[in-house]
Write a protein that binds this DNA or RNA. Structure first.
Lengths: 340, 340
DNA sequence: ACTGGCACTCTGTCGCCGGGAGTGCCAGGC
DNA sequence: GCCTGGCACTCCCGGCGACAGAGTGCCAGT
């Protein structure tokens, strides 16, 4: 059975009211608050159908209706129009991001901005190393047998690692290494570097090969294997908004999930270009997040994508507003990165 | 009126039982669980005195007694003996910290370890720049009028900033700058650098002074003014342990406070050497944290202190165990830093 | 196909009551 | 003088029943 326009309109009204009031919505209140042009009885019939189809449900007999995950899904896919940001919001975004001095600062400001605008938990992934290029590699001698390797990526990320050398190296040795390594790797995408690193070792004169091999292994580890993704979180206090009504009693599982970076990365780190992804309740693959929704998108300079960001909140969330905000923030951050 | 030994013993018993059971403790249960050698009636008299003195209170008439903040304070100061860590805990600490590859990793592992061992919220401050020395300064050309300044501190911290130059600079110019800057600043404590940076500008040949001045101002900003403290948080999910009984109903204010880095820094960043600080409930200067206690201490290689760490939990916490754990972790982290 | 009316069901709240835990006080004993 | 047993009192907490309110499903009528 397909749903006619009015039934969809009723669903939309239910979602909107429920999101706003946090209370099951009944037929009478619905016709009063929206101009549906029909009587409560008619709405009730429509509701019965919507419930049949699984889009809404009653917490108990003779309570109002509440959207199901499927209901929210339908709402997001077909019923919600994008809500344009207010000029005030746009100004807020610009003002907030404009003073950032380095990458850490950008991420930091972004995540707080997102949390504040959406009033939910915000997550921002640092630009992924896997999607970055090497801008420069620096070797800093710490002692005769130890150097610090500093990798600067074009996205602004800086990673450092300590390298234990097999034997002592002079300052000149280090300079030479530095030159060679940069010659070979600077400007390369990180994902392309492994064979280049190998060739570095191969081309090395035998006398120095030990040192180079040592450096190479750490390089590989830093550049690729342990291509660690970092992220930043803000707005956890927003989980307590609306009492403990959302999240079926405890936010325990949610807080636990937020501690797991792996989980968060899976959530916001799937990077289909210029597409905003919405995961609603049960659609989430993590049990702990079954009562939450996640809105995420990729960001990056221009059309390329270097990382993800998003927000997490109760399934009962303002999807149009949240989606609009997430997109807008992602675009601004991308622009900001493009300037560097 | 001074409290005799038995009254103190009663207080100790109350604190211990309450911490364990989370329920007001009555006189009868007390004599049953502890060998006090007197009758409940006697204990009741002692309790009346303890209440008079403000160390315990009754949630309502004819409920058991609960320690007040002052009661916990007395307990911590005079009644609790340090609880030595179990060998298993020591091993856990070592095993957890041993694989750390860089500073980020150390801090990350430490904070999670602390959260796990104490089952509370853990906070670890990155080694403070103000207490670090410059190991090396690197200048990486980004374009002809932009260079990236990377500062590596002896504590392992790496800070980077973008510098906009007033005019174009050649690779040689940059190399020259790099040499000069390092000559002057490497090895210096960050707090000693401002006059040195000034002298760098003064000694510069007039032709390059513009560039150097530009660099110098960013240097100053990076090194001193914006000597930003960073920190890491873990274990917020532990706040939900024990229901919402602690934290008088909502953890909202607590979560809010945890979002404010400034607050957290004040809490764990007061660095009296080798002293563990305990702030109990109302002793806390932040209203939002009135229902929590904070145990914090400094850490660093050897006897010097470069940063703070600690945990935050309900006033009803296992003080002896928590204090012991915080101290032990701080010592291990210090040792780890000393190795670099 | 929609509407008004009506009976029904369920929730949430209030007041009430009794059991239980714990206290404060008092008189008596060591 | 300190400790103890006894006793009356207070208060919380859980269960129970009544009740008002909200919302529904259904049916007959337009």
């Amino acid at each position: 059975m397909s749903l006619d326009d009015r039934k969809l309109e009723v669903l939309r009204a239910i979602v909107e009211d429920y999101v706003e009031t946090q209370e099951p919505v009944g037929s009478k209140a619905l016709v009063e608050r929206h101009q549906l042009g029909v009587s409560p009885a008619t709405v009730r019939n429509d509701m019965a159908v919507l419930e049949e189809e699984g889009y809404i449900r009653q917490p108990h007999t003779s309570a109002g209706r509440v959207p199901t995950d499927a209901g929210y899904r339908l709402f997001v896919d077909r019923l919600s129009k994008v809500k344009p940001l207010s000029p005030a919001e746009r100004r807020a975004i610009e003002r907030f991001l404009i003073g950032a001095v380095d990458l850490d600062d950008v991420v930091h400001r972004t995540v707080r901005l997102l949390a504040q605008l959406t009033r939910q938990v915000a997550v921002v992934q640092y630009p992924s190393l896997a999607r970055s290029s090497v801008r420069h590699l620096e070797l800093v001698p710490i002692s005769t047998t130890r150097i610090m390797l500093v990798m600067i990526a074009d996205t602004g990320r800086v990673e450092q690692r300590l390298v234990e050398l097999p034997g002592p190296a002079t300052a000149d040795d280090v300079m030479e290494l530095r030159r060679k390594v940069n010659e070979k790797l600077a400007g390369q995408r990180l994902s392309d570097t492994p064979p280049l690193v190998q060739s570095l070792v191969d081309e090395c004169p035998p006398g120095r090969r030990g040192t180079m091999a040592c450096l190479a292994s750490v390089l590989l580890e830093t550049l690729v294997e342990r291509s660690e993704e970092r992220l930043m979180l803000a707005g956890t206090a927003n989980l307590t908004r609306g009492g403990v009504l959302d999240f079926q009693g405890t936010l325990r599982p949610v807080l636990e999930a937020l501690e797991e970076e792996v989980i968060l990365l899976k959530l916001i780190g799937d990077l289909e270009p210029s597409k905003t992804r919405v995961r609603i309740g049960d659609e989430n693959e993590f049990d702990n997040l079954r009562s939450t929704s996640v809105v995420s998108t990729g960001y990056g300079p221009g059309a390329t994508i270097v990382g993800g960001l998003g927000v997490l909140g109760p399934t009962r969330m303002d999807y149009p507003g949240t989606i609009a905000t997430v997109r807008a923030v992602a675009r601004y951050v991308g622009d900001l990165l493009a300037q560097n």
